[in-house]
């Protein structure tokens, strides 16, 4: 799990000084959760499927980048692009091979299938990369910055900037491009979309590709901070899902907000309450939301759940 970049603060610093540090840490992990949550949202909107393999896309992005960079000695930018592209292809293949043939299956069967996909990808990763943690070097080797009393690594800045960039691109894509608009139409009303000549099948395929791309991007961004290994996907995926529910399943701004809230809540609770229960925070938030406001913070209506 993401460790705070610089947990060792000088003794005697007041709680409010630490607060800034916790916020920085929280926003960094929160940004990653937000990207994962966006991935969930994109697929959910197109298919009403919750893709339990979402976290594995994050793992794959990081792992493939490690191989490209350390194994093949490619330059960083190329490694990143190739890692994202490869993961996208895996996402597309997953949809074609495992999801499309069973589009009409029951919710239970779909859950099992995406869980199966997740285990399969994880198992393959274990075979290829083993069980060790793999480091990825930071994008820029500059020394950390000091903002007020907090220490901010350059990689944290990369994560934040990368997330902002991804969100902007996604927004532009949805608002300005034909494909983006078609994707939204499918989410809104697949039948009507089909009548307008939009190929819903193609859009679903596309949503898996897009979602894998976002996941891989998140994986590449976070790998220098946390290291990466074959099994990082499970927790990241689940946390991302908590974020998606918190924001309101199906809402893009909700996914981003949810990710940030969960990241910060985790970071604060590990700082002020107990680091052991840090992982429980996201799930407690998930449960409270499901029980009391299943439509999420930004969910439009209290849909039947």
């Amino acid at each position: 799990m993401p460790k705070p970049p610089f947990p060792c603060l000088e003794a005697g610093v007041g709680w409010h000084n630490q607060l800034i540090q916790y916020l920085v840490t929280g926003i960094t992990t929160g940004a990653i959760y937000a990207l994962v949550a966006l991935g969930f949202t994109i697929i959910y909107n197109a298919t009403e499927i919750i893709n339990f393999a979402q976290g594995e896309f994050v793992m794959l992005g990081g792992m493939i980048a490690v191989t490209m960079l350390a194994g093949l000695g490619l330059p960083l930018w190329l490694a990143v692009i190739l890692a994202i592209a490869a993961t996208m292809l895996i996402g597309l293949a997953f949809e074609r091979l495992a999801i499309r043939p069973v589009r009409k299956a029951s919710v239970m069967n779909l859950i099992i299938i995406t869980i199966g996909g997740s285990i399969l990808l994880k198992g393959a990763a274990m075979l290829i990369w083993g069980k060790d943690d793999h480091p990825l070097s930071a994008f820029t080797p500059a020394p950390p910055l000091h903002v007020f009393s907090a220490v901010v690594t350059t990689q944290s800045l990369w994560v934040m900037a990368g997330t902002v960039l991804a969100v902007i691109l996604l927004h532009v894509f949805y608002e300005r491009t034909i494909t983006g608009k078609a994707l939204r139409a499918c989410a809104f009303n697949p039948k009507a979309a089909r009548l307008c000549g939009i190929s819903v099948e193609r859009m679903i395929l596309f949503s898996f590709g897009l979602s894998a791309t976002l996941g891989a991007f998140a994986g590449v961004l976070i790998a220098p901070i946390t290291f990466t290994s074959y099994d990082v996907g499970t927790m990241l995926g689940l946390k991302g899902f908590c974020a998606a529910i918190l924001g309101g399943l199906g809402s893009n701004p909700g996914a981003i907000l949810g990710g940030l809230v969960i990241g910060v809540a985790e970071s604060l609770s590990s700082g002020y309450v107990s680091s052991g229960y840090k992982d429980a925070v996201a799930f407690l938030i998930l449960l409270l939301m499901l029980y009391f406001r299943p439509a999420g913070i930004l969910g439009k209506r209290a849909e039947k759940v």
């Binding site: 495992a98 069973v102 299956a105 199966g116 996909g117 399969l120 075979l127």
Partner: peptide, 15 residues
């Protein structure tokens, strides 16, 4: 190969 096979069984059975 346990995990790999296990995941594959799940998918194939459901399909």
């Amino acid at each position: 190969y346990e995990m790999l096979v296990y995941g594959a069984i799940l998918i194939v059975m459901m399909m």
